[in-house]
Amino acid sequence: MVSLVLVSHSPDISKGLKKMLDEAQPEVTVIDAGGTDDGDMGTSAIKIQTAIEKADHGDGVVILVDFGSSVMNAEMAIDLLEESHSVKIADAPLIEGAYSAVMEAGFGKSLDEVVESAVHAKAAKKVQ
């Protein structure tokens, strides 16, 4: 099963999001890698790297990010991985993308399918 890593500048946002995703699909591994190593506002490549290593059960990991240094640190985290992992950063809104991703991951879909569902969430209309 594909796992998720959540990266937000605000550790409260990724923590709350994880809780919401755990309720939706309890069997999917979701790791909250928001905030800095000290739990402050920000992001950390090392924290994201550790999360990827812990999350991967062999079917791959999708990383959901907010903006700015989240993307930069997620890319750096992937470069820092010592063993090979299938990891993709979804070009998707954090909350909506993560929700779509966790549903598909729970249905046993592949990494590419999970990433694609997250990316689709970007185009979802909220107001008709």
């Binding site: 800095t36 190593d37 490549a45 240094s69 640190n73």
Partner: peptide, 15 residues
Amino acid sequence: LLSKIGGASGPLYGT
């Protein structure tokens, strides 16, 4: 620097 600066400057100066 990578692990302690935080923000975008961490990965940039770290790199």
